[in-house]
Each structure stands twice: as structure tokens, then as C-alpha cells.
Design a protein around this nucleic acid. Sequence first.
DNA 1: CATCAAATGATAATTATTATCCACAAAGAT
DNA 2: ATCTTTGTGGATAATAATTATCATTTGATG
Lengths: 147, 147
Amino acid sequence: MENFSPEQRLEQMVQRLRDGDNRITPQRLAVLKVLAYSNSHPSAENIYSELVEHFPTMSLATVYKTIALLKHKGEVLELEFSDLGNRYDGNKPYSHPHVICTECGTIIDPSMHDLEEITKQMAIETGFKITTHRLDFYGLCPDCQSK
Amino acid sequence: MENFSPEQRLEQMVQRLRDGDNRITPQRLAVLKVLAYSNSHPSAENIYSELVEHFPTMSLATVYKTIALLKHKGEVLELEFSDLGNRYDGNKPYSHPHVICTECGTIIDPSMHDLEEITKQMAIETGFKITTHRLDFYGLCPDCQSK
DNA sequence: CATCAAATGATAATTATTATCCACAAAGAT
DNA sequence: ATCTTTGTGGATAATAATTATCATTTGATG
């Protein structure tokens, strides 16, 4: 998976919506921009409050709907947190590691790949004091595959 | 991290509560038993509905309170899912990989440790068709460490 | 520029979890 | 065994994030 610039990502997202016969409304474009340019893994609320200043007509529901659309098309990665709420990554919409501060909720992207050793590197690279991790694999179980 | 039998885990949990001057009530004991013996990563609701049959006085609030207590003491692992709701693992209350079916929500424990290669092994071992994974590290960021 | 399906926005509904509060019960002292 | 105290259970209200609803508005195509 290569990295794309925010400009490229925005263009990719827009194209993806066009291809799916989805309209490029000002509201959607605004949400896409935030997702493409932000590297802070914003929540829906974050996106909304950033936009509502310069776009008073914006509704939180629209943010959620746009995110749902992008999620469906694989153009945004959803990070699920029951306590922090969901956070979104539009820069790299594919599965990749994150480092989350359990105190302030900061989420950053480390740059790498293995595991017991990885955790140490992770700590060195990010300066975090890592206490635990989460590694889940998602897919279809045998029962569900045969349906 | 070694594995303990359900009996051992139950004893550990009970001991942990006793040490903390927490009372071992019938309700708590019942919740602990489910957590120690179940290997299906139950939700709070799952635990409640399993218990309420044979324990009509049980309240869902009590289940949540008991879980919170155990979580605080590190005796249960919370798996956060914004869509499935939280699920709990009392067998192995330490961080370890899971394999989750995105269709039916089944969660199982694989038996191993590494990552690109791991995903393949994971698929072979579990029969899942793995489409994505989640790898998060949790800890304190530099800012929060210095407070 | 007229059409019309699709999107917006305000709000209600839903769902999981947490907080509240009082009656009650567990564990230690008498 | 009974008393006492303090923690706990249970019913329910409150909270918070997300999703659904639906009347109104709007973007894109012919």
C-alpha cells in the first residue's frame, strides 16, 4: 500500500463517488477534504465542528451519512473505540497499525511491521510508554463463507 | 502468559476480589463463573441473559458493575466494538489476538504470534477468510507521561 | 432550464453503557 | 446469635454516540 498526498486522496475519493453515481455536494466535498487532509484521526463530531464554523448549514447527520458512504466504498478506515467513539482515517483507508494514548486519546500512525519486537520499536519510535496492544483479524468464519 | 483452567481462573478472580476487600456475593460469583468458563467472549447482555434464567433476581446493572470492577483489577479483557458492543474475555485477561467474523460476530482465540505470515496462518488455523485486521498499541504518549 | 431522484438538515429513535438512590445483605464485633 | 456498618444489588433514569425518519431542497442530466 503506497501513500498518497492529501490532494491525491481527495481526488480519489471524489472520483470514487462520481463512479458510483453519487453527487458531489458542497457538504460532501467539505467532509472529504477534512478526511483527506487531516492526520489526527478525527471523530464525526470533530469533523462537524471544524466545518460548521465556515459552513453554518452543515449538519452532523450529513457528516455521518458521508462517512457511511465512504466506508461502504472502502475510502475511509473506521477505528472503533467504545470509549473514545469512532475515529476515521481518510489518508490511508486500509488496515494499518495505530498507537493510541490511553490518557488523551491521541492516535498516531507508526511506520512499521512485526510484533514482540515491534512493540519495542513502536515505543522507541513514538515515545509512548506502551502498556498493551490490540491485534484483531477480521473476516468470514467458515459457517458464513458457505452461505 | 500461561493458560489457566476455568477453575483456576475463577479462583484467581475470587481471590483478587477478596484481596481488595470486595465482597463475594452470589451475583458476583455467578458473573465470575460465566467469565471464567465461557470461551465465547460474551457481551454484558449475554452474561445477563444466561444468568437471569437460573437467577431471576439478577440485574443487568450488576453485570456491568461486576465487569467494571474486574476490568479495574485487570481480571477481564474488554474487547471494544462499536457495532457488536463490548465483549469480554475472563479466561485470558491479557492482550492477545482475536479472530472476529464480520458476518456473525463470532470471536475466537487463535494460538499464535507474528504478522504478514501470521495472517495466512490465522486463515489456515481458523478456516476464516480474513479480509482485514486490527493492530493497535495502547499506552501513554510523551505528553501524558510527563504529567 | 426543467425535471426528478438523491441529498440535506432538523429531529426523533435506538442502543449500549453509566449514574443514581434506597433497601438490603455480608462480614466483623459484641 | 444479634447488631452494626458499610458495601452491594436492583430498578430506573440519564447519557452519549449513532442511525433512522421525512419534509424540503438541490445537483446533474437531457
